[in-house]
């Protein structure tokens, strides 16, 4: 088993690590703001990519929702689904597209059940992906708020 797989099977620990990093970045925010987010992004992106690739097989979508999806990267689902599994999951819990792989969402759901803090966020409706953020640092995007920005029509939908 790879290190990443081992870690992912300890979602409660990962959840804590996420919370820790989240707070760390909030602390660092004034510094990033002073140096300019563009420069900060260049600095943060590669270690972020390295670490998240190793642990989550991250695809750098730039709008990270890992903590809401059982610390399991939804972009590793071959259909890039952000709101849960398709109807094609095999009887053994493996993926429709890649029969050798367990369905990302079967794992995400199992792991979310072991996450006391963010586990229930798996029920949230996730907005469409902003494809322009592909390849950028999700941590910086979180600080600037671009990762949470959704099209105007989508926002109107939540009041409907």
């Amino acid at each position: 088993m790879s290190l990443g797989a081992w870690l992912r099977n300890h979602p409660a620990a990962l959840e804590r690590a996420y919370l820790f990093t989240h707070r760390l970045f909030e602390r660092l925010d004034p510094l990033f703001a002073r140096m300019g987010y563009e420069r900060a992004e260049r600095l943060v992106r590669w270690p972020e990519e390295l670490g998240k690739k190793l642990v989550f097989d991250c695809r750098m979508c730039g709008q990270c929702i890992l903590h809401s999806t059982g610390m399991t990267c939804p972009m590793t689902c071959p259909k890039n689904l952000r709101n849960g599994p398709c109807g094609g999951v095999r009887g053994n819990g493996h993926c429709e597209v890649k029969p050798e792989m367990r369905c990302v969402w079967v794992e995400a759901y199992e792991r979310s059940r072991a996450m006391p803090r963010f586990g229930d966020e798996i029920a949230l409706i996730q907005p469409p992906v902003n494809r322009r953020l592909q390849g950028t640092s999700a941590w910086i995007n979180m600080l600037t708020g671009v990762d949470a920005r959704t099209p105007r029509g989508w926002e109107m939908g939540s009041q409907a």
């Binding site: 259909k79 890039n80 689904l81 952000r82 709101n83 849960g84 398709c86 409706i125 996730q126 907005p127 469409p128 029509g153 989508w154 109107m156 939908g157 409907a160």
Partner: peptide, 12 residues
């Protein structure tokens, strides 16, 4: 889109 985003967009 995924099916839920599609559904919500149609509703919007």
């Amino acid at each position: 889109f995924d099916s839920i985003q599609l559904l919500r967009t149609a509703r919007i």
